[in-house]
Design a protein around this nucleic acid. Sequence first.
RNA 1: GGGUGAUUAGCUCAGUUGGUAGAGCGUCGCCCUUACAAGGCGAAUGUCGGGAGUUCAAAUCUCUCAUCACCCACCA
Length: 923
Amino acid sequence: MEKTYNPQSIETKWYETWEQQGYFSPRENDQDSNSYCIMIPPPNVTGTLHMGHAFQDTIMDALIRYHRMKGDNTLWQAGTDHAGIATQMVVERQLTAEGKSRHDLGRDDFIDRIWEWKEESGGSITRQLRRMGGSLDWAHERFTMDEGLSEAVHRVFVQLYDEGLIYRGKRLVNWDPVLHTAVSDLEVISEEESGHLWHMRYPLTDGSGQLVVATTRPETMLGDTAVAVHPDDERYQAFIGKTITLPLVGREIPIIADDYVDPEFGSGCVKITPAHDFNDYEMGQRHNLPMINILTVDASINDEAPEKYRGFDRYEARDMIIHDLRELDLLEKIDDHKLMVPRGDRSGSVVEPYLTDQWYVKVEPLAKPARDAVTEGRIKFVPDNWNKTYFEWMNNIQDWCISRQIWWGHRIPAWYDEAGNVYVADNEDEVRKKYKLDADLPLKQDEDVLDTWFSSALWPFSTLGWPENTDRLKQFYPTSVLVTGFDIIFFWVARMIMMGLKFMDDVPFKEIYIHGLVRDQDGQKMSKSKGNVLDPIDLIDGISLEDLVSKRTSGLMQPQMAPKIEKSTRKHFPDGIPAFGTDALRFTFAALASTGRDIRFDLQRTEGYRNFCNKIWNATRYVLMNTEDQDTGINNDDIELSLADRWIMSRLQTVSQNVNEHINGYRFDMAARDLYAFVWEDYCDWYLELSKPVLTKEASDAAKRGTRQTLVRVLESILRLNHPIMPYITEELWQRVAPLAGIDGKTIMTQAFPQADDTLLDQQAEEELEWVKTLIMGVRRIRSEMDIAPGKPLPVLLQNSSELDQKRFAENESFIMTLAKLDSVTLLGANDKEPESATALVGEMKLLIPLAGLIDKEAELTRLNKEIAKIDNNLQKSQAKLTNPSFVDKAPEAVVDKERQRVAEMETAIKQLQEQARKIESM
RNA sequence: GGGUGAUUAGCUCAGUUGGUAGAGCGUCGCCCUUACAAGGCGAAUGUCGGGAGUUCAAAUCUCUCAUCACCCACCA
């Protein structure tokens, strides 16, 4: 074996083997075993996977591998999402770079072009997932626009339409004037921006005066159809029912009264533009006001407005209108004002409320069962506080606008005749059959496509073959757990629950594990525009600083950011990124995956876990050196187990137990911590060292066999315990270790995950080894603090030893002599005279290392006094408790006893140390 | 305006039903001891955001204040 762990040389080799052997696929025709299934949240085919994906995929793969090892029939469903608007934009940008637009190509060619891109992007995504070690069932990979899924989409649309749960209607929607499409509420991000509040004078038609209205959007006045005041506002009682003449336009519009108006805000008068504001729209409905749309799809002024303003952009028109009102002395004042500006999450442009025909899902009838499923515990959020967020939204849910005026996506299965009648069915033939239409009646399909999330909502069952009642569907629906980020609870999670319950009559998943966001080292969200993204592959394979800089600064939407990004990149990664390997990266994610919190990604953690891999690698080298071609007692019952052997086996059971519990509770951070500590501290630092005296010094063959066997068996278990998190290194090493442990098998992937065996728990061995460790650490500490060379063998005297101490010493002499590097140990009797010594305590026993020529008297005194002060500090606290009568009366007896015992121990210790200090002083 | 979460060692974070505050990284010593210098041995470090309350006992439960982050919402 290589002396140093080198991830590159093992990773791709194993992945290919696994995939070729078909280990990732579930067993067919296995109805008996427990099913375990996770649907991958399908990555968008817009580019490549980022750290958030890598984190999420690590968790899913760890769960999948864990359950596969437990014998479950396990499926991790692979696939990608067509991501309508996002993907269309990516390809449109490419066209723009070529000096073309999608209209130059036409719809069909443009879609072909996107399919080409999909192949490319989808390919790099699956390559990344493979590098991450993801054990997905590639044989059944799906895409939200493949044939089967498209059929599912049609089926759902048609049924919901037939049941009246999908309808078409003309209403105000959020309109993206750059993308020329409607978007749903969720795709609109409102942020506070600085603006103005314009106070405009509207003259009464009868010339009797004027009203002042305040607005943040003066240009919409062209579409005003009323002015509203509060019905109880005394200032305006006389005006209600009168009309004003709209300046610049000349339209006569009524003054109405409505509770919605806040008399305290602005002037207490509101201009009402039902076609361009959601509140005004509702008021328009209440008061039967006309709706005048004054904008084009580009948000320029249309022909409903006075000629002067037609064709101008909304903001140009705003300036003109302000100017014109000022000329007419109709502008009272302009105040600075903070307002919430709604922007499209994709285009970043300011979204307009816009009156159009769109398709909607009537959500409430679907939402009720979806709420119940969580209330009744059929679906559990982990951590459970997310159900509050879920209910918060589900209780206020609005109808879902599902039509988009773009080209890339599922075309809406609706046809129109020339009279505008709507027919909905799977395809045109079906339409004619279903609605009994003449074969020659001209029909035209709806131009729009469906919101991407419509098909994503069907993912848990459409991928399994629905609407066919396939074996896979029967076997794996409902799925076991959904692993996802909180940011798509509304977009995706809630909608999957609604659709799953509606069409499968069962929940889509039993648990939802919500993880945090991966942020950069400063806690910033990672994004291309901030230039702080990391490609998981670059952590696996490493990347030079120059390559990283150019990767981060190329293709920016705002090229002027490049120098800043370069500077910060050079600061954070002065030497680029070394190749850490997949396993170290995965272990990092696991270790950081504490629940309910975002994680800051810290490269140093990954480096630490790369070192951990190296540790396992070298521990294996040691084990192999001492067991290969030697008798490990696999076929020989004549075995003697040392204290260390029994101890490490006992510890292994506890760790196995804990790791199982932690994985089942989605506490990968705790699992990682326990694994790390057990491997590094218990197994490497102590057990491997303890094995040395047995293997290299005089010991019986049976004892050597016992230790060799324990070395191998525990290591083999360690590899299995770590496999769900670190698949590659564990497979590589397991191939060499397993035969020595008498285990036969082609891959660690399908070996049983370690379960605790209580019969191997050995309390006595744990206590005794603790005693051995205390003794050894006592010597080491004196050695270090007294500046004695680590290699110098020392004599030790034991004083005040009990029979148990003496027995323990006799049985473990070899361990102690070797690990503490001693050359002699002498038991002192009660009357034996002790030399000048440095001291450590092992329970009541005193360990003495003679000073002669080695130890500085003053240094030892300082050391003792420091130790005494430390214990005394704790002693006082404990004594205070015990002298408090209410503590003794009210605290449980066990707690009081424990406190008493502690006081006794500390008192003895202090007595011993003080005595020692006196002796040294008097010398 | 509503809601959620956070505040613990220099940094990043654990701390499951209240019972002597932990880890990793970093820091400081000493060591190339034949598994591993990507290492070994040892050490230092905390008024657990502030205040009040409940309790024999609070990082943990309650209230309150402060700071930060995020989500939702129609105030022109």
